[in-house]
Design a protein around this nucleic acid. Structure first.
Length: 325
DNA sequence: AGTAATTATAGCATTACCTCA
DNA sequence: GATGAGGTAATGCTATAATTA
């Protein structure tokens, strides 16, 4: 049994003879052809495909990509740069005129069973040619985001939660898009989904997960930075304690040595330079001195480490100031 | 103008699936 | 072949903002 699928305004005759060339080519995903044996649709809307059923899926590209382009760095994410509906934090759901028609095509009406159902056809193979996940999902459920864009309860019950694996090309394309913009407005999402032959919800989820990964990575980096700061300060504290001990020992051995007045360090908020004021009470410890120099208490020093600006003077500076006084 | 309802989306935590050692 | 760990797609929930009636 041959099954031909054509998604687009101008269905073209299916030329299965061309499929190998189309697959072999590097043009991304607007025409997919697979040699499979048979298709059985179950009531859940899934179709499992066997090995020699010829299927061609033609999709009209949202923004045409030249056929001779072979690397993603040549791709233009024109849709990312357009002044499209909806800014982050200002989601515009009003679509008018041509855009509305276009959107209506992309977002199919849940009630329409004829022209507006969205077909999501996904066949993925891993590197060894093994079939990872194959479904053909016929869904009248448009992407809405949130619960209603997910499979209906019936579909949910009838089909187990399958995990698709994005192809390398899809992942790379999504990565490139993410580099340009970490969030998508609805139209960009639609366009990307169309280009990658994914459901908009999948694109949305991918971006959400990608943002989460980025944040996690950043947290790890921050953690490492704070750790190194902590180590540096611990080492510096150790050094200053040692120095203090030496000074005390020196003082004990030379009781008639002129004792300098105790100093308190303070930082000028404008120039961020450390200045000293002579007081009658000595700083309890070098750590206290450092903390007071930054307008901090030792207990909140840790928080300030995250912001180097707040702790932008080196212990050496303090030392020099003390020596100068 | 103020308000409640609706809708879309982001963030987050978690689950479930898949791959690989 | 079984298994555990890690990666990640998907889900569920909450909070927030924009829009509409």
């Amino acid at each position: 049994m041959d099954l031909a699928l054509s998604l687009g305004e101008t269905p073209k005759p299916f030329t299965f003879l061309d499929k190998s060339q189309k697959i072999a080519g590097n043009d991304l995903g607007f025409c997919m052809a697979f040699g499979e044996k048979s298709a059985e649709a179950d009531t859940g809307g899934k179709v499992s495909l066997d090995s020699d059923l010829p299927i061609q899926l033609d999709l009209l590209p949202f923004s045409p990509v030249p056929r001779n382009q072979t690397s993603f760095d040549k791709l233009h994410f024109s849709w990312l740069n357009e002044n499209l509906v909806g800014e982050p934090g200002n989601v515009n759901r009003r679509i008018g005129g041509v855009e509305e028609a276009e959107e209506a095509m992309a977002i199919s009406s849940p009630n329409s069973t004829v022209s507006s159902f969205q077909m999501d056809f996904s066949i993925y193979r891993n590197g060894r040619g093994k079939r990872d996940f194959e479904t053909v999902t016929l869904e009248g459920d448009a992407d809405r985001g949130g619960a209603s864009s997910r499979a209906s309860d019936d579909e949910e019950n009838s089909m187990a939660r399958k995990k698709l694996r994005l192809t390398k090309e899809q992942s790379a394309f999504l990565e490139e898009s993410f580099k340009e913009q970490s969030t998508l407005n609805p139209k960009q999402k639609q366009a990307l989904a169309k280009q990658l032959n994914l459901r908009p919800r999948q694109v949305e989820v991918w971006f959400q997960n990608r943002r989460a990964r980025t944040k996690l990575k950043q947290t790890e980096v921050d953690c490492e930075y704070l750790k190194s700061c902590c180590e540096t300060l611990t080492e510096e504290n150790r050094r200053l304690q040692k120095e203090l001990q030496e000074l005390r020992a020196l003082k004990a051995s030379q009781p008639f040595y002129m004792q300098p007045p105790a100093t308190t360090l303070s930082m000028c908020p404008s120039c961020e330079r450390v200045s000293t004021t002579t007081t009658s009470t000595a700083a309890a410890s070098p750590t206290t001195a450092i903390a007071s120099a930054g307008g901090m208490t030792p207990s909140n020093m840790g928080q300030s480490l995250a912001n180097p600006k707040l702790f932008s003077f080196s212990p050496g500076q303090i030392h020099a100031q003390q020596a100068a006084s």
